[in-house]
Computed example of a mutant assay.
Amino acid sequence: MSSANRRNPHLTLVSSSPQPRSAPPQGLELAWKNRQILSDRLDWPRGMLAICERVERDFPDWSIVWSDAWYWSGSRTRVGFYAEFRKTIFGVTVPKVFGATEKALRGALAKQAAAITRRKADRDRTIAFIRAAMR
């Protein structure tokens, strides 16, 4: 079903919900349903929801959304895909990731995954050093 975009009345978008969708990974059913509602309410262009789901299948520790420059955490954003790490890792800060395209997002997520691995290793070495010093 087509509709005019609320932010740009000259841009006609197609609702993403009629697209056939695969079942979400176990434990992410509510998150996937919420993203579908978000995509319908914010008039995401056709295919953006499917790309988010496809990338999230490959990077299940990340929550993926598409944005057309609406406000994200109080600041104006660029058009593209945003990813936020789902888990909390003690002593490791994980920033949000942006990619203008699916390929760019995948590259940024792979780079961030490597950085997380390095940060966890640094944290583990620090903890081991502190434990050894306390003996």
Rank of each mutant, 00 (worst) to 15 (best):
A100N: 03
G74E: 10
F98N: 05
V92N: 09
Y82T: 03
F98G: 03
T93C: 12
E84C: 03
W72E: 01
V94N: 07
T93H: 12
W70S: 04
T77A: 08
T88L: 07
S75M: 02
V92Y: 15
A100S: 09
F90H: 10
R78D: 11
Y82W: 11
T88E: 10
G74M: 08
G91H: 12
V97H: 02
G80A: 08
K96N: 03
T101M: 12
G74L: 04
R86A: 07
S73E: 06
A100C: 08
G99Q: 09
R86H: 04
A100E: 12
F81C: 05
V94C: 05
W72K: 00
F98D: 02
F85Q: 02
F81N: 04
G99Y: 08
G91M: 15
G74T: 13
P95M: 08
G80C: 15
T77K: 15
R76P: 03
T88R: 14
E102L: 11
W70Q: 04
W70L: 07
V79L: 06
G91I: 08
G91K: 15
K96W: 00
T101Q: 10
A100M: 11
G99I: 09
I89S: 05
K87Q: 14
P95G: 13
Y82V: 00
R78A: 11
Y82Q: 00
G80M: 09
S73C: 05
W70A: 00
Y82A: 03
R86C: 12
F85R: 02
Y71V: 10
T93R: 12
G80T: 12
G74D: 10
T77V: 10
S75C: 02
F90A: 11
T93M: 08
T93Q: 02
R78I: 05
T93V: 10
G74S: 09
W72H: 03
V79P: 01
R78C: 09
R76D: 02
R76T: 06
R78S: 14
Y71R: 12
F90T: 07
T77D: 00
R86W: 02
G99M: 13
V92L: 10
G99D: 12
S75Y: 00
W72I: 04
G80S: 11
F81I: 05
V79G: 00
K87C: 15
A83K: 06
F85A: 07
R86I: 08
W72S: 01
V92P: 03
F81T: 11
Y82N: 04
R76M: 08
V97E: 00
K87H: 11
A100T: 14
K96Q: 01
